[in-house]
Design a binder for these strands. Structure first.
Lengths: 99, 99
DNA sequence: TGTATATTTAGATGACTATCTAAATATTAT
DNA sequence: ATAATATTTAGATAGTCATCTAAATATACA
């Protein structure tokens, strides 16, 4: 997953809210929706983007589908971003950019 | 500046390269261009986006325009992003999102 | 003053985004 | 089986994005 894909996934306020919610606990779609002013299809779309960015996962529980943060991936990604933001990095290997 | 604006500014690989270059030193547009496979107008556009996100500044030096990282802002922004990425954050005040 | 160099602005294009309503799918309960 | 609940998919729309070429602006040099 490229840094750009990750940054893009994080660049929408509704997706940021979703992640903030899922940091606390696993949640069903309609439960998440209660915190956002968007329709369920739109939320579904955002969840799909976060899923493709590998930041969250889902599992079915009866009628509901529960979404949760991909903890380990999220941490990896955070590391990567922090490294990118770091000013002390000596050799930015420009040719090695994934993008 | 909202987190979304910042994430968006960071979500393009060419802009990431520009920032990585400017972390090292102040650079003229054509100097930066040498590292990227885009035309000067496109680079100019990216510089404008980074500038609007308050991540970089420019000053004229003769014919050239030198771009540099807004060090203090860049650090502030990094802090903000790191806080957002932090899993230990207790109370994500969802209603207080800038976005 | 005219020419070369550096950068930005204007205008266009095709791709992608967030959003919606309506319809489809899947599960549970009666 | 039928109805209710939960979520996703389909299809449309208006807006934004990265990119380009061509033209404009600004500075320096001869």
């Amino acid at each position: 997953m490229s840094l750009s894909t990750t940054f893009h996934a994080l660049s929408d306020p509704n997706r940021q809210k979703v992640l903030d919610l899922l940091k606390k606990k696993e949640m069903a779609v309609s439960e998440i929706a209660a915190y956002l002013n968007i329709t369920l299809p739109t939320l579904s779309h955002h969840l799909d983007i976060l899923k493709r960015a590998n930041l969250i996962s889902s599992r079915r529980d009866g009628q509901r589908i529960l979404y949760s943060l991909n903890l380990s991936v999220f941490e990896e990604v955070s590391e990567k971003i922090i490294k990118f933001l770091s000013l002390k990095s000596k050799k930015p290997k420009l040719d090695n950019f994934e993008d």
